[in-house]
């Protein structure tokens, strides 16, 4: 763990999750403080369907507004952005979102790796990436990018994850700064 971790501002928090991650977000998002000083970007593996109700469901009890991203939306602090189903989500250097309908990565679109890598590139050492429950290898490569750009990485403690494979894979194949349960995650995020 790096000593200056908590003294360094956060430019963006990007959260990746797959199977078993929604339950975590339902608990985590409501206990985040209002008016966060950075944007939160959610990349979740989900069924590709027209229904956009997930952002509404995630909004409830959440003190920071949740928005499903549309092409070229600005990335603003204090907002929670949800990657739309069936698009990769990237961040441009001018802090706007880009969507991308290219090949799936890790059998996934959106792919967590794609967004982690993009956030690492734009935010560098101010990037914070959090990887939640899942049964897939997505996120591990992205963690490597975040680390090599000097950012910070957090995983959900696999012991507390419904599907421990994804956080466990990141721990064993990349470099992880914090392994936390939900309460600890909220504590850390609220101090970023």
């Amino acid at each position: 763990m790096e000593e200056d971790s908590l003294n360094r501002p956060c430019g963006a928090l990007v959260i990746g999750g797959s199977a078993g991650s929604l339950q975590v977000l339902f608990q985590l998002l409501p206990i985040l403080k209002p008016a966060l000083t950075f944007p939160v970007i959610l990349v979740l593996h989900r069924r590709n369907s027209a229904d956009s109700t997930l952002s509404e469901v995630l909004s409830s009890k959440n003190q920071n507004p949740v928005k499903e991203v549309e092409d070229k939306d600005p990335v603003l602090p204090g907002n929670v952005y949800l990657a739309p189903a069936d698009y990769h989500l990237l961040v441009e250097r001018d802090f706007t979102f880009s969507l991308d309908y290219s090949e799936k990565v890790n059998f996934s679109r959106p792919s967590i790796d794609v967004t982690f890598e993009s956030v690492a590139e734009v935010y560098g050492r101010l990037a914070v990436a959090l990887l939640l429950s899942g049964a897939n290898e997505d996120g591990t490569k992205g963690f490597l990018s975040v680390k090599s750009s000097g950012g910070r990485t957090i995983v959900q403690d696999p012991e507390t994850a419904q599907m421990p494979f994804m956080p466990h894979h990141a721990i064993t194949h990349s470099s992880v700064d914090y392994i936390l349960n939900i309460t600890q995650m909220a504590d850390l995020i609220n101090r970023l």
């Binding site: 990237l90 441009e92 250097r93 880009s98 290219s102 794609v114």
Partner: peptide, 8 residues
């Protein structure tokens, strides 16, 4: 869009 192009 530069992010996507660079990735490609």
């Amino acid at each position: 869009s530069r992010a996507s192009l660079k990735r490609r």
